[in-house]
Computed example of a mutant assay.
Amino acid sequence: METPVELKYSEQHVWVRVENGRAVIGVTDFAQEEFGDIVYAELPELNDELQAGEPFGSVESIKSVTELYAPVSGTVVQINRALLDNPGIINLSPYERGWMAIVELAAPEQLNELWDAQRYNDSYGHE
């Protein structure tokens, strides 16, 4: 189970990587393993206003449909359109090619509320 130390994590298995004042977000390796083979990804629209803790999209796997919750608030400035045609990228590369959206942060201090890799791993019983 991969949990990059440079990322921040939400309790709902969404990761955040800060780049140039923007938050790149996606689902964790742990989550994609739990989901199984992802067959559909619902992404937010450009310019959508995300609110931390509110739904921003979902993934559908052969097992279930899972709603995803925004780890931070902000405006969607880019989405990973490759996932619309090939959502399985999330299974293959959850932290690199499988990112879901890039958000212009509305409240950067919300990053302080997210977990580091150690706390995420400790909370979900893996290393």
Rank of each mutant, 00 (worst) to 15 (best):
13 H>V: 01
13 H>T: 00
15 W>E: 04
16 V>G: 11
16 V>Y: 11
17 R>F: 03
18 V>K: 00
18 V>S: 02
19 E>W: 02
20 N>A: 13
21 G>V: 03
21 G>Y: 05
22 R>N: 08
22 R>K: 12
23 A>E: 04
23 A>S: 06
24 V>E: 09
24 V>Q: 07
24 V>R: 06
25 I>L: 09
25 I>N: 01
26 G>P: 02
28 T>A: 11
28 T>C: 08
29 D>M: 14
29 D>E: 15
29 D>C: 13
29 D>Y: 11
32 Q>S: 11
32 Q>R: 15
33 E>D: 15
35 F>N: 09
35 F>C: 14
36 G>V: 03
36 G>C: 13
36 G>Y: 05
37 D>R: 07
38 I>N: 00
38 I>Y: 04
42 E>M: 00
42 E>D: 05
42 E>F: 00
43 L>Y: 04
43 L>M: 13
44 P>R: 12
44 P>Y: 08
44 P>K: 12
44 P>C: 09
45 E>I: 01
46 L>Q: 06
47 N>W: 07
48 D>P: 00
48 D>M: 02
49 E>W: 00
49 E>I: 03
50 L>G: 05
52 A>Y: 04
53 G>L: 10
54 E>W: 01
55 P>M: 12
56 F>Q: 00
56 F>V: 00
59 V>N: 09
59 V>E: 05
59 V>Y: 04
60 E>P: 05
60 E>H: 07
60 E>D: 08
60 E>F: 05
61 S>M: 08
61 S>L: 07
61 S>I: 01
62 I>K: 14
63 K>Q: 08
65 V>R: 14
65 V>H: 13
66 T>L: 10
66 T>N: 15
68 L>G: 12
68 L>H: 13
69 Y>N: 02
69 Y>R: 00
70 A>E: 05
71 P>T: 09
71 P>F: 06
71 P>E: 07
71 P>Y: 08
72 V>E: 09
72 V>W: 08
73 S>E: 09
73 S>V: 07
75 T>F: 05
76 V>R: 10
76 V>P: 04
77 V>Q: 06
77 V>K: 06
77 V>C: 07
78 Q>E: 15
78 Q>N: 11
78 Q>K: 15
79 I>K: 15
80 N>K: 12
80 N>Y: 10
81 R>S: 15
81 R>V: 13
82 A>D: 15
84 L>E: 14
86 N>R: 13
86 N>M: 11
86 N>H: 13
89 I>V: 15
90 I>S: 01
91 N>M: 10
91 N>Y: 06
91 N>L: 10
